[in-house]
């Protein structure tokens, strides 16, 4: 019981903390988050000078802070700094090596802000995301598909750890040595049970969804209410401003 209780208490505290933070700041509308994600995608795809890139990451960290996740924000800042430092280090390497490795780090640098935005989007509850998408009239089929995708990541994680354990017991452990020496066999041993499990889950899930009226013709409603407020306008403006600066710079105006 004790351990159960400790776990429970921790969860409880987390919930209380979350609720107080949420009361203090009004959460961003999931639509705003989607807009930010798209905008950041466009921004990182265009050529970007170093200062602006740092500024962008800073802005996203700020958004994370606003979303009430200081720990995540700190973690991201540290990780990003680490990537930058490594990048600079790699540039010091002789010719060819520098060229090959620096490409890797450039990609990592570009991807990082996008991943941060995705993380922010996932802070919203599934129900809120659905309502946000419903409000901008995305068709139900796409909304449902996206909900299932969200749900499948943790499922895959769970299934994967089970398969890993099973492989270990059967004497075909998943480790670096085996992956390098027998890539084909390892892939097979992971994929066969994984695909089988996922197909079972998806069939049962579809049945459960139909029994709960997912294919009804009536317009879906929502438990959650999403509102576009001042805070959304503010953050959107900040991101737009940054985008405009970047584009003006590119066109040579500034």
């Amino acid at each position: 019981m004790r351990q159960e209780k400790i776990r429970f208490d921790i969860e409880e505290q987390k919930i209380i903390k979350l609720r107080t933070v949420m009361k203090k700041t009004i959460q961003l509308d999931p639509r705003t988050k989607i807009a930010i994600l798209i905008l950041v995608n466009i921004i990182v795809l265009s050529p970007l000078d170093f200062g602006l890139e740092v500024l962008l990451t800073g802005l996203i960290s700020l958004t994370m802070l606003y979303a009430g996740k200081p720990a995540d924000a700190a973690k991201c800042v540290i990780q990003y700094t680490a990537i930058l430092l490594l990048y600079m280090l790699v540039l010091k390497l002789p010719g060819m090596l520098a060229a090959t490795f620096s490409v890797l780090f450039v990609v990592a640098r570009k991807m990082f802000p996008v991943l941060m935005c995705a993380k922010i989007l996932l802070y919203s509850r599934a129900g809120e995301l659905i309502e946000g998408m419903q409000k901008i009239h995305i068709t139900k089929k796409i909304v449902i598909a996206l909900t299932i995708v969200l749900r499948f990541f943790p499922t895959i994680k769970e299934e994967f750890s089970c398969i890993r354990e099973a492989m270990k017991i059967r004497g075909i452990a998943l480790n670096v040595k085996n992956v390098l020496l027998h890539p084909a066999a390892t892939t097979q041993y992971i994929l066969v049970p994984m695909i089988q499990r996922l197909s079972v889950v998806s069939e049962e899930l579809s049945a459960a969804a139909i029994a709960r009226g997912i294919d009804s013709e009536t317009k879906r409603t929502s438990y959650y209410q999403v509102r576009f407020g001042a805070q959304d306008a503010l953050f959107l403006c900040l991101y737009l401003l940054l985008a405009v600066i970047i584009w003006l710079k590119r066109l040579g105006v500034i």
């Binding site: 509850r125 129900g127 809120e128 909900t147 749900r151 499922t155 769970e158 459960a208 969804a209």
Partner: peptide, 11 residues
Amino acid sequence: RSQFFNVDTTS
């Protein structure tokens, strides 16, 4: 395990 559509309980 396979009856859920959402990631959180309330939704």
